[in-house]
Design a protein around this nucleic acid. Structure first.
Lengths: 187, 187
DNA sequence: AAATAAATTTGATAAAAATCAAAAAAACTC
DNA sequence: GAGTTTTTTTGATTTTTATCAAATTTATTT
C-alpha cells in the first residue's frame, strides 16, 4: 500500500502540502535481514511499510524479545527515540524483503514550518499509533497464551509464514515450546 | 502542579495562544469515588491532574482491572475514545479528592483553528503520552511479579497509600495474594 | 543424496503464580 | 467497646507455563 494512499485516508492534505510531503518521502528497498535501526542509534525516521514485514525487538539477557511486527500499511519507528532524539533501546529489522517509505524527522519538521497541515497529519498518525499500542497492551493483559496466539493468527495470519517461531513466541510472551503446544492444540 | 506550568515545560506557547488555551481550561474538584468517565460514554476531555490520583480501569469478567494510575502532573483520558469519538471501554475514577483541569475535545479543536501552535502542543502531549505507555509496556513485559512491585514503589511511592491492594494487584497483573506475599518478602 | 546443522516438537520435571480456604487483622456499626 | 463486616495475610493445592533434555523434522552444505 502506497503511503500517499494511507495519508489520504488519515487526513487528506491540501494540494500544496501534499506535494511538499511527497517531496520528503524517500523510498527504500530492504532485503530480509537488513536493519532499519540498531539499538543505540537515534531513530531519525518514521518508516512506513508499503510491502513486507518489519520486526522491532529489545534485548533481555542476551535474548531478543519482539515487541511488534509492522506489515503492509503500517508505520514503524522507535517512537521514544524519534521523539526524544535520544539513542533507541530497540532495533528494527526486515524479516522479509520490504518496500519502505522513510520520512526523516529533520525533513518533516522542516516542512511543517511551511505547512501546518503536515503537523496535523503527523498528529493524527501519532493518535492512530497510540491507539494501536493501547489495544495491544489490553490484549496482552487480558488473554491467555492460547488466546493470544489465536488472535494473532486472526489479525496477522501472514505473519506465521514470515516470522520464526522464536520471534512469534517472544512477541506473545511465551516460550517456543508453549507456542508449539498451543499450535498443535495441546493447550 | 498547575497545568499551565506543565504546558510551559512541554511547549512554551506564544502569548495569544496561551491566553486562548487558558480560556478553554475548566477546573473541577472531584471527591474520592467520583467518576471522570464511565465505560460506554464518549470521552470528551483531556484531563490533567493538578492534585490527587485517578485510576483507569476495564472490566474483565465482572472484575475490574486497573490499567493506569494518573497522579499530580500527569494527563489522563481514554485516548481511544477521545480520538475516535466512540464510546470508551474504560472508566476513570478519582481514588482521592482531586483538583483537575479539563480540556474538551470540542474547545481544543475549535481553538486550534485560530492557533496552530495549540496543535503543536497537543501533538507534543500525545508524544509524551505515547512514550509513557511504551515504557509501561516494556516494563510489564520484562519484569517478574516482584520487580514490577519494586519499580512501582520506586516510581509512585505515594500510590501505596491511596490505592487499594486489589487495584494495585490488578495493575501489576498479579493476584491479591501474590502481592501480599511480594510485599512481605515471601517471594 | 548423504551428512551436517538448525529448527521444531515432544516428554518429563520444575518453577511461578493462581486459586481455594481459612485465619488474622483492620475497619466499621451499633 | 463488643460485635459485625471487610480486608489482608497465611497455608495448601492446582494450574499454567518455563525449563531441561531428548527425539524428530526440516533446512543447508558438500
Amino acid at each position: 500500500m502506497p503511503i500517499l494512499d494511507l495519508v489520504d485516508q488519515i487526513y487528506p492534505l491540501p494540494k500544496s502540502a501534499k506535494a511538499a510531503f511527497a517531496e520528503i518521502i524517500h523510498y527504500r528497498v530492504l532485503e530480509k535481514g537488513d536493519f532499519v535501526l540498531k539499538q543505540g542509534q537515534v531513530c531519525h525516521n518514521l518508516v512506513f511499510v508499503e510491502k513486507g514485514t518489519l520486526r522491532s525487538f529489545y534485548f533481555k539477557e542476551a535474548k531478543d524479545v519482539t515487541v511488534s511486527f509492522s506489515m503492509m500499511g503500517e508505520f514503524s519507528t522507535s517512537m521514544y527515540s524519534f521523539v526524544s532524539r535520544k539513542p533507541s533501546y530497540e532495533s528494527i529489522e526486515a524479516i522479509e524483503n520490504c518496500y519502505l517509505a522513510y520520512i526523516s524527522h529533520h525533513d518533516l519538521f522542516n516542512k511543517i514550518e511551511q505547512h501546518p497541515s503536515l503537523e496535523r497529519l503527523y498528529r493524527m498518525i501519532l493518535e492512530q499509533y497510540y491507539i494501536l499500542l493501547e489495544e495491544q497492551m489490553i490484549f496482552s493483559k487480558f488473554k491467555s497464551a492460547k488466546e493470544r496466539y489465536v488472535e494473532l493468527l486472526a489479525g496477522k495470519p501472514k505473519l506465521i509464514q514470515v516470522a520464526t517461531v522464536g520471534q512469534i513466541a517472544s512477541y506473545l510472551d511465551m516460550s517456543i515450546e508453549t507456542l508449539s503446544r498451543v499450535r498443535h492444540g495441546l493447550l
